[in-house]
Amino acid sequence: MDYTLAVGDTETTIPGGTGVLLLHPSIGETDRIDTDFLKADTDNFLVVSTRTTAREVEQKLEHYDVDESRAEILDTISVERGYSRRSADHFHYVSSPDDLDGVVSQIESFLGSHAGKRRVSIDSLTELAYYADVDGVYDATIEILDLLDEHEAVGLFHLSHEVHDAAVLERFRDLFDVVIDLTDDGEVTVELPEE
């Protein structure tokens, strides 16, 4: 099963099971890349949000004209911050962003309960590492990549290139076949596997 990947000047397909790493500045405008990834060629998608509430994710999807009927949202911050949890069938929660087992479990549940083409966006690995630790997030990333492979789904993983040192960036980069690099001035480059 192949999926469309249209980012910047690149339009191609990637096979199910592919993880895509999005390297970006701390305050980079990732919403357009994220929503373009989610709305193309998909039956259902899951947004794992570590920075905004489920309602704010929903507003982002509305703003970028993404079909919300296909959306599931995992909100990792509302419980910890004491925000009220909005009850909706497509909203899910874990206790805090450092509950990596809970995050992986929710992704597994989403992939196992939906058929067809599925996409997952994790916004962001950097934020998860802030709450947990880099090693834990690295291990969780491997688990999520294995789940994507098992279910022939694809995932977009956000990572800030301003927050982590070169060794950490290289360590994560080595896990991914496709890397999108968003520069400070908004330029986008896409590294694809060599044929």
Rank of each mutant, 00 (worst) to 15 (best):
A140G: 03
I107W: 01
S160L: 08
T52Q: 06
S113T: 14
G155E: 04
P25I: 11
R118F: 03
V188G: 14
V120E: 02
N44C: 03
T126Q: 06
D99R: 05
V137S: 10
V188R: 06
R119P: 04
E162R: 12
D181A: 14
L111I: 08
D135F: 00
F157S: 12
E68G: 04
V48N: 01
V103W: 00
E195I: 14
H158W: 02
D177K: 04
D65L: 04
E191I: 03
S49A: 09
A88P: 03
D165T: 06
D184H: 12
H24S: 13
L192E: 01
E194L: 15
Y64W: 07
D2T: 12
L147M: 10
D146K: 12
T189H: 11
A153N: 09
D165G: 09
P193T: 09
H164Y: 02
A115K: 01
T18M: 14
L61F: 02
Y83W: 10
S26F: 04
A88M: 01
D2F: 06
S160M: 07
T189I: 04
L100M: 08
Y83E: 15
D98Q: 03
H161R: 14
K60F: 13
D75S: 02
S49W: 00
T76H: 02
I73V: 11
L111D: 08
I122L: 00
D41Q: 04
Y93E: 05
G186S: 08
L46S: 10
Y83I: 15
D184Y: 09
L128E: 12
D174V: 11
E29P: 06
M1A: 12
D101Q: 08
H24K: 15
K117G: 00
A6R: 08
E56N: 15
T35L: 02
D185M: 09
E170Q: 12
S49F: 00
T12M: 11
R173F: 03
D98M: 00
D34R: 05
T126V: 09
H114D: 09
L192F: 01
H90P: 07
V94Q: 04
L169C: 09
R32Q: 15
R85C: 05
S26T: 06
L22S: 14
V188H: 09
I107R: 06
L5M: 11
L22H: 14
G16E: 06
V154T: 15
L22M: 14
V47G: 05
E56T: 14
E152A: 13
F172R: 15
D181C: 11
R118S: 05
I27Y: 10
F45E: 07
H161T: 03
T141C: 02
P15M: 11
S105R: 07
A153Y: 07
T50P: 05
H90F: 08
A167W: 02
T42K: 00
R32P: 15
Y131A: 14
P193L: 05
E29W: 08
E62G: 07
Q59C: 11
E62T: 13
L23T: 11
R118E: 07
F45D: 08
Y131C: 10
E195S: 12
R119L: 01
R86Q: 02
E58R: 12
V20C: 13
T18R: 10
S84K: 01
L169S: 07
E170V: 05
